[in-house]
Design a protein around this nucleic acid. Structure first.
Lengths: 257, 257
DNA sequence: TAATCAATGTGTATAATTTACACAAAGATA
DNA sequence: TATCTTTGTGTAAATTATACACATTGATTA
């Protein structure tokens, strides 16, 4: 899960037209091989990893900017995105580091350039279907990789803290987010859905009680098909009933897990 | 509850030294006469009301800026403050309005001034003890007033939406916020505490079950004293046990109300 | 090809929690 | 001194959550 392909061109002109002082950073969650993973980037000539992020264009809302970053990085449209916190410590970014990072990307701005002014970052998290994502690199990025959330590498600035906060909020907000719908493929088995919840919550759940509860919400449809090919007894496939799912999420999924 | 006193001097110099593009706005909640109230300001020569807010100084964290705004407005130190959402729609502020608002305060900036660049606002809510607050006006503000949250007036920009969101988040986060400790005086009765919860949640709760539950958390100490002077049977006074309260809040108050 | 192994599908009894509910005592007021 | 409203207090019933086991399936391997 280590890639150095699909280089996109960066329009360097853009740098002059973005807003200073504000950025967005995205924590992109995916689920694969029973692991909750985040998609991280590594900038050219930089050892530490980064969250996908960027600046706002003057006429762009925060949500639109986050959506654009996501689209550019994953190629996905209509991604589930949620603003979760805004990071505004005075020294969250070290300007010297920032200057050096840009310089190593071949971008040479005056140290007094307004882009080096202190910058707050609005954090968003995304829930994406792992198999649908084809991450893209641009001129500044050298590598992308899905990391297990339990084992993320050292990151620039306060990106480790941002990632930690995203996970905390995701856990706390589980009842209100369509995690199943967004992190799993269209058809999935009950054990797969349970594993997803167990992985996010980092604890095991009783199999029969989980099924009883989740079916009780009336948000799942059991298909005639079963998942074949695996060893052991073939489990049924399920699909979410989107309408009822979103209706149920409006008030939250009742229980806390 | 309508005041035109305590005018503070504004250091106009400051305007030139604050960051553009970013502001903080504070929704200050208080509890009085069985009403949940928010403290709003009215700017000179402006009909609509405003949330207390302001810009960041270059060396100030978001939290510090919110804290400063609160301190300036309420005279309180060590206020409970919580960041709840960042508002970043492209057109949340109308620049023409903003220009006109400043002009009517006697502040005449060029329409192209960077302070008129689109600005995002980081929303904080505060929980304050009503009786402790002595709101202060400055050169720009003409009036302050506590408004029942169910009946706030028309406000500038998106301040009505910000207020609504603050209340929604407060309700959803009730389990995690020390509302009792911050909104009530040091000593209070069980019926007063219940009224606070009922008011925030906008629903009635069973008296005996409420008491059973809240006492079950072990965060209250019943004093020997009773509240005297009221009509009818004198209720006991209680005090929060802060240590245990904060410990209980770490994982949330278990139940949802 | 039969036996083995691990995962899946399924229901009930018990424990824990939540809810509903009423009467006596207090203190001001008429 | 009677009245009125509020406060203090406990239990039974209903609901919800938890704990738990065996038969079936399908691949693997003996």
């Amino acid at each position: 899960m280590d890639h150095k392909i699909q280089v996109k061109r960066l329009d360097e002109q853009k740098l002059g037209t973005v807003l200073p002082h504000v950025s967005v950073d995205c924590v992109i969650f995916g689920f694969h091989e029973n692991q909750l993973r985040v998609l991280l980037l590594r900038l050219k000539n930089i050892e530490e990893w980064s969250l996908p992020g960027g600046r706002l264009f003057p006429d762009e809302s925060l949500d639109d900017a986050a959506d654009r970053v996501l689209r550019e990085r994953t190629g996905l449209e209509n991604i589930f995105l949620k603003q979760f916190y805004t990071f505004g410590d005075r020294n969250r970014m070290d300007n010297t580091d920032f200057h050096s990072i840009l310089a190593r990307q071949g971008i040479h701005l005056d140290v007094g350039h307004i882009l080096f002014d202190r910058t707050i970052s609005v954090g968003y998290y995304a829930l994406v279907e792992f198999s649908q994502v084809s991450p893209a690199l641009d001129e500044l990025t050298e590598e992308w990789r899905w990391w297990d959330v339990r084992d993320v590498p050292a990151m620039i600035f306060d990106h480790n803290a941002i990632t930690t906060t995203a996970l905390e909020v995701l856990r706390r907000q589980l009842r209100f987010d369509p995690v199943g719908l967004n992190l799993l493929p269209e058809k999935f088995t009950m054990p797969e859905l349970q594993k997803l919840y167990e992985t996010i919550l980092n604890k095991t759940l009783d199999r029969r009680n989980f099924q009883k509860r989740i079916l009780g919400y009336g948000i799942l449809t059991r298909l005639e098909e079963r998942r074949v090919g695996g060893a052991h007894k073939s489990p049924y496939l399920y699909r979410f009933n989107e309408d009822q799912y979103f209706k149920a999420l409006e008030t939250g999924l009742e229980h806390e897990w």
